[in-house]
């Protein structure tokens, strides 16, 4: 079962989610502040971070940034609907998904599983290692190399890249990507996709304004290539 680090300042929410997740079999460490959460990272070694955006001293977006500097720990933000600006900031800082409070423990658990699930190979028959320009995509090892150097990709980024590159030149609508990559409903927040594409483009070194690997088709969605 995954180990979940929960950073939430409100005691009732913290205890509620902790209790709910623990009952579902997760090992949960709950901290009240971002600083405490960051400190606990080394000792607890979580598989995933549940991060409240509104924190007293160091806020969720800053925590997100700090964690992304160090590694690719999956991050799910806890947020309230209406905190739209913060959601975009959090997604740009590297969060993989977000959950709107209040939410049942079941929902939280489902999101955790979705984020942690490894990308399935949609084609199945494709070779494990592919080369696309400077990128080397290794589906078996779940790694992407750029000019031979491994790229530090967050889970959502990796899954999106694998999903798009599995069928090059096919256009995926953002709603479809939400369903297939994020395992979310059709009507979910397409900004998840947009923010993820933005981060991915930066990491694989796309020239600004003229992306080669992940291309935008206005009104239709995204596609991988053609190079």
């Amino acid at each position: 079962m995954p180990r979940v680090l929960l950073v939430e300042d409100d005691r009732s929410v913290r205890e509620g989610i902790e209790l709910g997740l623990r009952r579902l079999g997760h090992e949960v460490l709950a901290t009240a502040t971002g600083e405490a959460g960051l400190e606990a990272l080394g000792a607890f070694r979580p598989d995933l971070l549940l991060l409240d955006l509104m924190l007293p001293a160091m806020n969720g977006v800053q925590v997100c940034h700090r964690i992304r500097e160090a590694g690719q720990l999956p991050i799910i933000m806890l947020t309230a609907r209406g905190d739209d600006g913060d959601i975009v900031l959090g997604l740009d800082a590297g969060a993989d998904d977000y959950i709107v409070k209040p939410a049942r423990a079941e929902i939280v658990e489902a999101r955790i599983r979705a984020v942690l699930r490894r990308a399935e190979d949609p084609a199945g028959a494709r070779p494990p290692v592919e080369h696309h320009g400077e990128l080397t995509v290794d589906r078996a090892a779940h790694t992407v190399l750029r000019s031979g150097a491994p790229l530090p990709l967050a889970p959502s980024e990796l899954k999106l890249l694998l999903h798009l590159s599995a069928v090059p030149e096919q256009v995926f609508s953002r709603q479809r990507l939400l369903k297939e990559v994020w395992e979310l409903s059709y009507h979910s927040d397409v900004r998840l996709v947009d923010a993820c594409v933005r981060r991915l483009r930066i990491k694989i070194g796309e020239p600004p304004g003229a992306p080669r690997y992940i291309q935008t088709l206005r009104g239709l969605g995204y596609r991988f290539g053609p190079l």
């Binding site: 009732s12 913290r14 205890e15 509620g16 989610i17 209040p102 939410a103």
Partner: peptide, 20 residues
Amino acid sequence: SHELRTPLAGMLAVADVLDE
């Protein structure tokens, strides 16, 4: 509604526990 939401978030998280 804002003030109601925070306690509700805690309550809703454990509602499943109650059901189970």
